[in-house]
């Protein structure tokens, strides 16, 4: 489903991703690990089309991501659910409206939006805070909204870039459990993290990066610090 073929990314003379090659199959849960600056976020940015690779090909389903122009990117991203460490929620909308917005841009009918949105917000455990504005929510709650927004359009893949970086341990595990539940329902999950404890407990595939290079790719891997 996702293929990186000899992908490199340079900023000036600084090569932040070097000849990365790997495949991710549908339904996999893959942890992308490495220290800060290892190249995880750049890899994810290239997958979602936020950055263009300097070299190589990135295939996502029917799309050759590296060849898509600005107008074609929205369609690609409607097949992805993206979660960030800084949440990236629309600050002037409520939790409910953030989720509704994702469905509306995907062209979902009004009746479906009204039916599905409360269910998804309930699933992520937002409770009674669905009508609160984003600044009225805690970090954990914001990330739950981000997950609800990411999963509401039934994407082919959920891409989470350090989703627990700003959260306390309890909320961290709440979010990881949600991602695991989503994966069990058949959605591919890519989790970029430098949280060793999470990766080691997940016991799923681990792709390790260091200085822009993929140094290890193991089924049921561990986070091994060098």
């Amino acid at each position: 489903m996702i293929t990186f073929n000899n992908v490199s990314k340079k900023y000036g003379d600084n090569e932040v991703v070097r000849e990365a090659s790997f495949k991710i199959n549908p339904g996999e849960f893959v942890s992308l690990v490495g220290k800060s600056g290892a190249g995880k976020s750049t890899l994810i940015k290239m997958l979602i089309g936020e950055e263009r690779p300097s070299k190589g090909r990135i295939i996502f389903g029917q799309y050759e991501v590296n060849k898509l122009n600005d107008k074609e990117l929205p369609e690609l991203r409607r097949h992805m659910g993206i979660i960030f460490q800084d949440f990236r929620l629309l600050p002037k909308k409520t939790a409910h409206e953030n989720v509704v917005f994702a469905m509306e841009v995907a062209g979902r009918p009004q009746r479906e939006i009204e039916e599905v949105t409360p269910q998804v917000l309930d699933l992520v455990g937002l409770g009674t805070k669905t009508q609160n504005f984003i600044h009225e929510l805690s970090g954990g709650e914001r990330q739950r909204v981000a997950i609800a927004r990411a999963m509401v359009n039934h994407p082919d893949v959920i891409i989470a870039d350090e989703p627990t970086g700003n959260l306390d341990p309890i909320n961290t595990w709440g979010i990881i459990n949600l991602l695991m539940k989503i994966n069990e329902l058949g959605t591919t999950v890519i989790l970029a993290t430098h949280n060793k404890e999470i990766v080691n407990q997940l016991e799923h595939r681990v792709i390790s990066m260091e200085d822009g290079k993929i140094i290890r790719d193991e089924e049921k891997g561990k986070y091994i610090l060098v």
Binding site: I48, E50, D70, K71, L73, P74, E75, L76, R77, R78, M80, I82, R88, L89, L90, P91, K92, F101, A102, E104, V105, A106, R149, N153
Partner: peptide, 15 residues
């Protein structure tokens, strides 16, 4: 920033 977020969610330019 909001425009950037809308793009990440998959909103078209027109939207």
């Amino acid at each position: 920033d909001e425009i950037g977020i809308m793009r990440l969610v998959g909103a078209s330019n027109m939207f």
